[in-house]
Design a protein around this nucleic acid. Sequence first.
DNA 1: GTCTATATTGTGATAGAC
DNA 2: GTCTATCACAATATAGAC
Lengths: 188, 188
Amino acid sequence: MSTQDRLIESTRELLWERGYVGTSPKAIQQHAGAGQGSMYHHFKGKPDLALAAIRRTADEMRATAEGVLSTPGSAYARIEAYLRRERDVLRGCPVGRLTMDPDVIASEELRAPVDETLDWLRARLAGIVEEGREQGEFAPSLDAEAIAATIVATVQGGYVLARASGSPAAFDAGVRGLLSLLAPGSTG
Amino acid sequence: MSTQDRLIESTRELLWERGYVGTSPKAIQQHAGAGQGSMYHHFKGKPDLALAAIRRTADEMRATAEGVLSTPGSAYARIEAYLRRERDVLRGCPVGRLTMDPDVIASEELRAPVDETLDWLRARLAGIVEEGREQGEFAPSLDAEAIAATIVATVQGGYVLARASGSPAAFDAGVRGLLSLLAPGSTG
DNA sequence: GTCTATATTGTGATAGAC
DNA sequence: GTCTATCACAATATAGAC
């Protein structure tokens, strides 16, 4: 792995762990085993390096989600697979956590990949929900876009509950509750 | 308002805006119009002051939620009132956002009020859901604890989606989706 | 209780040698 | 491409005068 790559990977790790504000160039360099000079040779500065790291993390998250959502099966089954997929719950979402970073939100450039990824996920889920609705799997009255937002929010909020309590249990409970409400033939 | 109080209130504002890692003692002092000496006279340091601020914010959040949840009406109506209550959506949840702060999560003392508040909220909502279930408002098969976790997660995750997109629309969509799934007599 | 002075370490970056 | 030196400023305090 090139020094440039190690810098990006180290930044991804630290952004996930400590966020943008809590991650210093020095910490990145030490984690990557690179000197100041290397970092500033390959990147204009902290925001530039962070942008490369965020883009890579966002791409990876999208690919992972697509991998689960594009499996064969009913709409409900695919949504369940997405919700129950293995996760490092206590670490939280490497993309979603950036929304709590004031400097990321203040920067159009840094916020863009975060916004685009979550927006893509919502749209992808909305399509699946809509498919399920058309197939008679869900009630005809159901609003696919709204349900998709609920699904993504339950996951993102599940991380919050899990991290607050120091246990993945609350995340799992939130997912279980949502699935019980979505279950075909369920009355709540 | 005493200097001590101004320090706490300033810390609350800054913790909400920038988180623990992003908030410096100097910024707090300037916001409060107090000198270094005052701050270190009233508080042992940044963690001590942050603890006072977090406790106050947590207490306030609990009181606000209880105010909405203790109104008369059906279980569904109270849950809807909670979900639709006026919020400064783009600012996010002043308690929930702290779960993304590495230094808060790393400290038993600082995490405790966050955990207790979200845990109280889940339990309070679970009680209301259970009431609704017993009254025949919801399906008998419904798991009150799980649904409560879903409700809190939808709110916390709604903030994430809203901040990512720079608009409250996604928060509102998530809430709408959840309410449509919970609606008495709904089939989804 | 509040103020100013001082100290140590970290942050984020530039300059220029190798 | 990588390294070390250097820099101005911020973070987080302590000390002691007032």
